[in-house]
Design a protein around this nucleic acid. Sequence first.
DNA 1: CTGTTAGCGCTTTCAC
DNA 2: GTGAAAGCGCTAACAG
Lengths: 338, 338
Amino acid sequence: MAAGREHVTIADVARRAGVSPATVSRIMNGRFAGEEEIAERVRAAADELAYAPSPLARSLALGRTHAIAFMVPDLANPAFQSVLAGLSKTAARDGYRVLIADSGESPSEEPLLATEIRRRTDAIVLCAPRMPEDELVALVERLHPLVLINRRLPDAVRPAVAPSLSIDYRTGIAAIAAHLYALGHRHLAYVYGPERSASNAHRERGLDDFAREHPDVRIARIPAGAASEEGRAAAPLVRDSGATAALAFNDLVAIGLIGGLRRLGLSVPGDISVTGFDDIPLAQYLDPALTTASVSHADLGVVAWNRMHALIRGEEPGHDVVFQPRLELRASTTAPRS
Amino acid sequence: MAAGREHVTIADVARRAGVSPATVSRIMNGRFAGEEEIAERVRAAADELAYAPSPLARSLALGRTHAIAFMVPDLANPAFQSVLAGLSKTAARDGYRVLIADSGESPSEEPLLATEIRRRTDAIVLCAPRMPEDELVALVERLHPLVLINRRLPDAVRPAVAPSLSIDYRTGIAAIAAHLYALGHRHLAYVYGPERSASNAHRERGLDDFAREHPDVRIARIPAGAASEEGRAAAPLVRDSGATAALAFNDLVAIGLIGGLRRLGLSVPGDISVTGFDDIPLAQYLDPALTTASVSHADLGVVAWNRMHALIRGEEPGHDVVFQPRLELRASTTAPRS
DNA sequence: CTGTTAGCGCTTTCAC
DNA sequence: GTGAAAGCGCTAACAG
């Protein structure tokens, strides 16, 4: 029935065990080389007092927190959730926790937000697709150790070693377009993501590649965003474009778009094919199952932690990785009518 | 091109501005009452040195971190992701960050895990459906301020004020069963979640309620878990049970189960109806759209923060809340065959 | 009003 | 081997 002090500190334990705080510290951290009997006594005292070292104090003294930061543009996106799950689980295995930040509401404050959470932790995994490159470059030094997701630093800055893990959106979307082309579609609509988003730019480039090789194809560009409501809102424009197939920025947009098109009385893929990007966990179970470019986000989270861990230990983080999406053909695409 | 010192501290700023660290501290925190000219000088010095206070040091000195912990059994579950998104966004508005922990792998270490992340933060939001009640009770004092999700403390301990936000699984699942009954199903299968899970127990109770009122119904119990693979694995047993409708523990299990049943050549809902629980964001878009009990998890996250914030400020946290699920009738349920 | 001093709780040289 | 003392960077009494 004892226990329940206000705050038991290392000094309390030391006093009770009749040793100095330094000794307790050494024993608690395995740097003790004295008699086992003393160690036992200290451990007993610690147990009796239910002592546990203050992580805060340790952090301050040691200069490391055993926590890493993770900033994303939208925590509600299943793709980022998967990355987080992979990151968090792997980091935990090495005794690290993840502090999260959703920059969603205000992209303009991303640099401050990133800086703030970075300072509370030992490192940061950053996903900031909309941050202007010059701001990012200005930030990278202050943020180190830093792992970037979905963007690479310009070559000039690269030596600063901020490993980058990205997804080959460019090739991925080109593959989707090629698939639609093979089905016979000649009039596509790209329902695009956030303006100024790096990953959207990559997709645009992929479509440019595709367009160059297929001059007989028309591609309408229709504004949306990264969330499903924006996909839904884009439905009328997609219909009016007359396209026979729509490539959505990502799975969420595709899902919203499909919903919107249906509400307009169109059938997918009967009247119009729709594709996504990401292959979020439920994409295969959708109605219709979504044709998309599959990316293993959880793996990305795992690799992010591997890089991070190396970086934290001052090791070489290894080369950048570009994850190759795999085309996942499902029911949401079919040949155009007649 | 300047900036980039090793670590600029409050002392550096003080020196440069020709004042004491205390003055700098006061100015940085708005507790300054001296001449504006001095404040200006200090701010200028801080700017020039690109000074930013160390959150760690502040935390140690102030005794608060402006961070809260969030522990869940499975970060990969969309339901918890929604809670997290709601919690994180709302907390951020008040300047609080969220530190996460996934207890998934080892339920036995939940108490340690919770204690650990709690000590790194100012409070904790805990979702630990499988933790034995006595362990939970033993923990609650050490964890305070604490907000519980999906379980309530025994009345005897209640005064300890750990507000609880829960979901009325009991009523929810009974409503689902009633719906199936109304459709004509008389042989149900409950594909149950983690043993010892509090929220599973609630569902069982709800089904007991239902069974009592409907002696003409047979309910088979089939083991699964909380994840979709477990739902898929349960498919053969569900088929063999001969039930005409299956109530899955949650949406994920339902999704896996539907996939598994299909693989066995059965059609849903043609051969067998399937229901979920949670109404995860994509449930309505599934094939078939999932009949489920809808719970606003993001709202739950928001309310969790409200309670937490009150608690942190030492205010009354308000009464416990029990979120009522709403029956969401969709395509995965239909009348049994002849 | 502002600076001095004493911590917050732990780690770690540096002597003994 | 072990303890005393300094310090991580900041805040808050307490004087002046």
